[in-house]
């Protein structure tokens, strides 16, 4: 990677840290999913099955097939292994779409993209620097969230199970295989959107399309329609990576000055 590309990545990260419009949602949303909701689950589990709403189907399935010492263990097990994985995937999607919208559409909206086009960096180098510059902080937010979630869950795990319960193989697949693929998908989606959207807000609204499959995943899980296991996660990750590969080809072609300015 050329030094100009590194400078570009560093600038993008600095801009994110300097803008509360970008920084705050990336701080608040993960905190809700990895801190507030898990703590609510862990506290709610104390009150047994009646403490948590919306998990009835999952509880029925696992109560019949798996044995736990008490209801609290059952709830924590279901929450950590079946409900939160799909919630967690919203974090890389959200981070990638906010950072992608800022990096691609935001530069266009703030008229700084044309300034970049006048520098001696080729359009391909600019594209790759922008993708890496968006991927690194988006994945960093995901990793940071993973660590916080792990700490919270293990404190609860120690309390209810007397041992550390995180990370499981499923979570390792999520963080090392599925999250990078999803992050990249979010960024590519924003590149494709950048040719159409004129403003950061417009791009953000369009990102709702990419959140939709994750919402379906959440609904599918909580209703017990299907259960995420390691095979499903590995397959899903592979499918998204293949989609990333093909979409990246299209996005690279779309990222041309003619379409951007």
């Amino acid at each position: 990677m050329k030094s100009a590309q590194k400078v570009m990545i560093y600038k993008d990260v600095k801009e994110v840290l300097g803008s509360s419009q970008l920084f705050l949602p990336m701080l608040i949303v993960p905190l809700v999913f990895v801190l507030i909701l898990p703590i609510a689950l862990l506290i709610g589990a104390q009150f047994g099955n009646s403490g948590i709403n919306g998990m009835d189907q999952l509880i029925k399935i696992f109560a019949a097939t798996t044995s736990f010492d008490n209801d609290a263990q059952l709830l924590v097990y279901i929450g950590v292994n079946y409900l939160f994985p799909s919630f967690f995937l919203l974090i890389p999607i959200m981070a990638a779409s906010i950072l992608g919208a800022s990096s691609f559409v935001g530069e266009k909206e703030r008229k700084t993209l044309e300034s970049l086009l006048y520098t001696p960096m080729s359009i391909r180098e600019l594209f790759s620097a922008k993708v890496v510059g968006t991927f690194v902080p988006a994945y960093a937010v995901t990793l940071f969230s993973f660590i916080i979630f792990g700490i919270v869950v293990n404190i609860g795990g120690w309390f209810y199970f007397g041992k550390l319960i995180f990370p499981t193989l499923k979570w390792l697949i999520i963080i090392l295989w599925l999250s990078p693929a999803v992050t990249l998908l979010g960024i590519i989606f924003m590149v494709l959107v950048s040719a159409k959207a004129a403003t950061f807000q417009e791009a953000q609204q369009m990102s709702a399309f990419i959140v939709l499959p994750i919402i379906l995943l959440v609904v599918g899980q909580s209703t017990g329609l299907f259960l995420l296991n390691e095979i499903i996660l590995l397959t899903l990750g592979a499918m998204i990576l293949i989609a990333d590969y093909f979409l990246m080809g299209i996005a690279t072609k779309k990222f041309s000055p003619e379409k951007l300015i």
């Binding site: 801009e15 703030r110 008229k111 700084t112 044309e114 300034s115 006048y118």
Partner: peptide, 15 residues
């Protein structure tokens, strides 16, 4: 070789 200052090429406001 060229330096460009146009209304459509701005500076970074957060820097």
């Amino acid at each position: 070789l060229c330096g460009v200052m146009t209304e459509t090429a701005a500076s970074y406001e957060n820097l």
